[in-house]
Write a protein that binds this DNA or RNA. Structure first.
Lengths: 300, 300
DNA sequence: ATAATGTCTTTTATCGTGAAAAAACATTTT
DNA sequence: AAAATGTTTTTTCACGATAAAAGACATTAT
């Protein structure tokens, strides 16, 4: 088995959802851009849909014959990228405790444990290394630096530097820039979420990322924009991991975001700076309290 | 051919240089740490040295029999890492012109052209991607973003942010910190180079990197320290590439460094800030003038 | 003529494999 | 006993091979 067809399976599932909405499907290239895959994959999808009697397919005519049933879908776990699988496995081990700083990381062992080739693990580790949690010893193993207090402090230091600058750049953007509409949209999403906070307070994580990415993009600096990947990654796992007072935390954060949005709209740099600082301070606090104190980080 | 023995060859060459200085070699583990390789490699080296009559080897006794001659050495090009070979090839293409922004990068083609496996090229590109010059399209090719004016501006923006902060942190370091001795040593190296600038004005590049890395380290922030890799990489190729007024530029830079060092030693934050800004401004200018204007970078 | 479909080619993603290098273990020497 | 040498096992690094996916080219339909 040399390569899984998860791209096909994932696109197939997404295409099934499309099926419920129309009586016939668009052209192959159109479907391709819609699903974000090549026409080759689109045709594989159509072939199978024809076989399973979901559509009748004759050249341009792709008529929907029946609504998809739950077992037309490929199982969720078969649609994951190998990289995602490896990342999840790796992060589980890392956060499940017993991952002491200084510990060695063994490519071969990881690969065997996850059941994938070493190449994929190697590539993952190289990509992952930019998050600053692991480090390579030349011609030798990787070393785990650990998800320590020091890490969180270094991360947030940069984050604050970057976001303050981005927020200032945002506020200085001309009135006719498209970002103001984006900001309005995010604002109403925040208000909506604030009302429904009881039901779906875990939807905040995703909204949070969209909001901060919008601000960082105003910096028009690829290094700042890219750095948000590090933050997003940490917060992603942080949210999954630390559920203590999640609802309260999110409620507070939504409030801070709304104030922050207000400040941005006022275009008053002083207000922006204050609102941004306030939010980042509490975000840092949240992150810090979630890190087990037990193992103090020592710097040489 | 599945893996070159460049580690062995490089360590062998370095060990030959050691040979000229002593009558007998130290223990295997000692040699290992000295050369930065495992004992396995040390033993391979010793075996060959015995075969070629350089040493007599009997257990602990490793007596030097003769001085190494030039053809005892492995050729320089056989001691390079694959990663280095790929990087050089890649950068040559990138800087040799004809590398328009937006151009596709083809792993297979690169691998064939350089004469290496695709895996190594892939891994190189993943590692290289953190420099912000290339970007991956999911399940597809890489895209060259180009060594443009925009890139240089984004890079220097971060650099200035990071270095100003690091310099301030540096100046605030306690008097008994080891960095002050390092700084003194660097200062005298600068003065020495200033005198000999006529002969070895290209030695500056290496000194420059050591100086700035020392300052960045004072930030005690891995993201700041790691970011210097990006700067170092760009400047490394920049120095190789742009030889115009090299001597004058370096002379100016040495002067600025000395003023910067003076400011640091004064521990006066105002002075540090001013000296740092002044130097970074001219460094940016140097970098910018070396970028061909022809193809203006467009941001969307 | 444009845009779709049908077909063929190239590239990417992933694995298993084997040599180089590291690391672990066993034995000897000081 | 500590530290070296001798020996064996593991891991890393890099390759070629192969299926999935993308992309290019040829043909047909509007």
């Amino acid at each position: 088995m040399s390569k899984s067809n998860n791209v096909y399976k994932d696109a197939y599932n997404r295409c099934l959802r499309l099926l419920g909405e129309t009586r016939s499907l668009p052209s192959e290239p159109e479907l391709g851009t819609l699903l974000g895959v090549s026409r080759t994959t689109v045709r594989s999808i159509l072939s199978r849909m024809e076989e399973t009697g979901l559509i009748a397919w004759n050249k341009r005519a792709k008529t929907v014959l029946r609504d998809p049933s739950p077992d037309d879908f490929f199982p969720e776990e078969e649609t994951d990228t190998l990289a995602e699988i490896i990342e999840r496995s790796f992060m589980r081990r890392l956060l499940a405790g017993g991952a002491e700083a200084g510990m060695q990381i063994n490519e071969l062992e990881l690969a065997r444990e996850i059941g994938v080739g070493t190449t994929s693990v190697r590539e993952f580790l190289i990509r992952f290394s930019r998050f600053g949690l692991i480090e390579k010893r030349r011609n030798s193993h990787w070393v785990l630096k650990g998800f320590t207090r020091a890490f969180a402090l270094e991360l947030t230091e940069i984050r604050e530097m970057f976001e303050l600058r981005s927020a200032a750049a945002f506020a200085a953007l001309p009135q006719d820039s498209a970002v103001w509409a984006d900001l309005d949209r995010l604002e109403s999403e925040h208000r909506q979420l604030a009302n429904e906070i009881a039901m779906r307070f875990n939807a905040f994580s995703e909204l949070d990322e969209r909001f901060h990415r919008l601000i960082h993009r105003a910096s028009r600096n690829r290094f700042i924009v890219d750095f948000y990947d590090v933050i997003a990654m940490i917060f992603h796992y942080h949210y999954q991991w630390n559920k203590a007072q999640e609802r309260e935390r999110n409620e507070v954060a939504i409030g801070e975001h709304l104030a922050y949005i207000e400040a941005l709209k006022s275009r008053d740099l002083g207000k922006v700076d204050a609102a941004c600082r306030k939010h980042l301070k509490s975000a840092r606090q949240t992150l810090l309290t979630s890190i087990p104190e037990s193992r103090q980080s020592q710097k040489p």
